[in-house]
Design a protein around this nucleic acid. Structure first.
Length: 652
DNA sequence: GTAGGGTTAG
């Protein structure tokens, strides 16, 4: 005797569990339901079964086959299956889930029976699935055809369908299309407004979101739409992007005087807005008024303190919070890196590993930035191996960080190698490569990369131009330098910053075009900084232009009176020009003013340990060996300089 | 049944 079939309640429970049963078990359940006559469209079973089938197998063909066994299915079953898929957390894995949704949808259309055609519930689920995929990675597809069907089947007057379509367009298509749908739609409700406002904020157009919000407030009476907390979360977030504290206070006031629900999310976004607008005090006071703080609340405060350089407070927040996911770890680490406390960032990473928190892409990017700043090549290579071992996707951000790390840590070959392996490079990736090449003296390669980048249609920005200009500077390519400097303004409408001017002035000065350099100093739109005057001074000293050199030196003293270096250099310039008296006078002035040289500091990494050195440092255990080596290098440089007949002063 | 927040490279 075969065992008796399980009771329907047991079957229902099996089908309703969050994790669907495996396909083999599903087929058995299916057979039991058929035998018990429980699959007519008036039962709940077809929907449950369809949803379970849709979720059961990652192999699309299996699920499709199993679903075909169920036909004819009522629309509600298809809807349930699409809904289950659109909510499933398998979305990280790519397009499989959406493909299955679209397959179900096609099966529904093809079934051709009167009881099974897409209805007002089908499209919201389906469009949500399409939009969610695009929000992840891999590009949205299929949504456009679905939108066509919406119009064909006359669902463009169903407010739920229209809202879902608006959201789909806002996420996957153009905001213009989403706006047109909104403007031309005969039906509109609070969700319609919120969808469009949220869309503008997400796509980085907060001004448009604000305009829409004020229109909404003005139309409130006849349109019967009152801004709710979803509206306000959108506009307050947009206000954070605008960095407009005054507006932020107004919106906060609006929230409090219009009975908008102060949920934790509302409070969190208010805090975030205040942090972005520069009022840590206001953020703190909002934080203190939150009753049930979430990880986001704490993390936002960490970000806030870190932004103001208050790393001790950030750390205190971090230590005080009751539970942590990867976000607060990343936020604190980002803070350390941005405040140049890179050693602390590395220490934090070790703590993170001890706490068994799985690092993600952001963690790796932070680690690599820390390594770049410390010149910690070995640690950087360890991170690279970690990425490969754990098969983290070599995203643009991660790849760019690797290129930057290798370039800044001195291994330009490896930087080039990684650069070639990044499948999708963006402007930042190209910029990192160009700057790396320039800093390693590969001027022509840097310029070639720049031209290639333009050819591929990538937009260079200010940093890219710092790269090419410094390449020209290193190689003395005056003509190219002039070309890029003018291109920046004429073709790319990029604002030329101090760094660009100092690069250009240095280039002109070194190449002997001191007049042109001086003219550029006189016409630059900002007050020249120490680097500019330093470049002028250097050129003057090289070419024996004492009067301009004196002027540059005076400016340098003015900018930083405590910097003793310039007095020394000025004295040297006089000495080289055989102006003994003036040289002595400067030295006397130095003694009189009591200016002392501030010790410079540099660090180097060896076997994963970072060593710091200051001038004349004798504290290291291997100090004798280090100084012997330094002496050797100095001799070699002098020797090479003699052979090439150039001056080695200032090199050592 | 539709909409909403925080960490992110040069």
């Amino acid at each position: 005797m075969p065992p008796p079939p399980p009771p329907p309640s047991r079957l229902f429970a099996l089908l309703s569990s969050r994790r669907p049963p495996p396909l083999r078990l599903l087929l058995q359940i299916h057979a039991h339901l058929l035998a018990a006559g429980l699959l007519s469209s008036s039962d709940n079973f077809p929907s449950r079964l369809a949803a379970a089938y849709a979720l059961s197998s990652p192999a699309t063909s299996d699920a499709a086959y199993a679903l075909a066994l169920l036909a004819p299915l009522p629309t509600s079953a298809y809807n349930a299956a699409i809904r289950a898929l659109s909510l499933s957390d398998e979305f990280g894995g790519g397009g499989g889930v959406v493909r299955r949704c679209l397959q179900l949808y096609r099966a529904l259309i093809r079934s051709g029976s009167a009881s099974a055609r897409p209805d007002h519930l089908t499209f919201p689920f389906l469009l949500k699935a399409c939009a969610r995929l695009h929000g992840g990675k891999g590009g949205g597809y299929g949504g456009e055809a679905v939108l066509g069907h919406v119009l064909q089947l006359g669902f463009d007057s169903d407010v739920f369908v229209v809202n879902a379509a608006t959201n789909y367009l806002a996420v996957c298509g153009s905001m213009g299309d989403a706006r047109r749908l909104f403007d031309e739609s005969p039906v509109r409700d609070l969700v319609s407004w919120n969808t469009l406002i949220g869309g503008y904020v997400r796509r980085g157009n907060p001004q448009e979101a604000m305009d829409l919000f004020w229109r909404m407030v003005a139309e409130e009476e006849d349109a019967a739409v009152r801004p709710d907390e979803v509206t306000m979360i959108g506009v307050v977030s947009g206000c954070g992007q605008l960095r407009d504290l005054e507006l932020g206070r107004r919106l906060h006031g609006f929230v409090e005087s219009n009975g908008v629900r102060c949920t934790v999310r509302m409070m969190n976004v208010l805090m975030d807005m205040y942090v972005k607008c520069g009022s840590l005090e206001m953020a703190k006071s909002v934080f203190e008024r939150i009753e049930h703080r979430t990880v986001v609340s704490w993390t936002t405060m960490i970000v806030g303190y870190a932004k103001f350089g208050l790393m001790d407070d950030a750390r205190r927040m971090f230590d005080e919070m009751p539970e942590r996911d990867v976000f607060p770890w990343n936020a604190l680490m980002t803070g350390y890196v941005q405040c140049k406390q890179c050693k602390e960032a590395l220490v934090l990473f070790h703590e993170m590993q001890e706490a068994n928190v799985k690092p993600d892409e952001i963690t790796m990017v932070n680690l690599l930035t820390a390594c770049s700043q410390l010149g910690a090549l070995e640690m950087g290579m360890w991170v690279h191996r970690y990425i490969e071992k754990h098969r983290l996707v070599l995203s643009v951000a991660l790849g760019t960080s690797l290129v930057d790390m290798y370039a800044k840590c001195g291994n330009i070959e490896k930087a080039i190698h990684v650069f070639k392996e990044i499948p999708e490079k963006n402007a930042l990736t190209w910029t990192a490569m160009i700057c790396g090449l320039a800093n390693h003296g590969h001027a022509n390669e840097a310029i070639e990369h720049f031209r290639k980048m333009i050819e591929l249609g990538q937009q260079p920005d200010e940093i890219t131009f710092i790269g090419v200009l410094s390449a020209c500077c290193h190689a003395g390519l005056v003509e190219e330098g002039r070309e890029f400097f003018s291109l920046m303004d004429s073709k790319y409408q990029l604002e030329r910053k101090m760094k660009h001017y100092s690069c250009m002035i240095d280039l002109l000065g070194r190449a002997g075009h001191l007049d042109e350099a001086e003219q550029l100093v006189n016409t630059m739109p900002m007050e020249p900084d120490a680097v500019v005057w330093g470049a002028i001074f250097f050129a003057c000293r090289m070419q024996g232009n004492i009067s301009l050199g004196e002027k540059a030196a005076m400016k340098l003293v003015e900018i930083d009176p405590s910097d003793s270096g310039i007095y020394v250099l000025l004295a040297n310039m006089y000495a080289e020009a055989n102006m003994r008296k003036k040289a002595d006078k400067v030295r006397a002035m130095m003694r009189h003013l009591g200016v002392e040289k501030v010790p410079g500091c540099s660090c180097i990494e060896l076997n994963g340990v970072v060593h710091e050195f200051i001038v004349k440092d004798k504290s290291h255990t291997d100090t004798d060996a280090i100084y012997n080596c330094l002496h050797e290098i100095t001799l070699q440089i002098r020797h090479t300089a003699d052979l090439l007949n150039i001056s080695a002063t200032g090199v050592v």
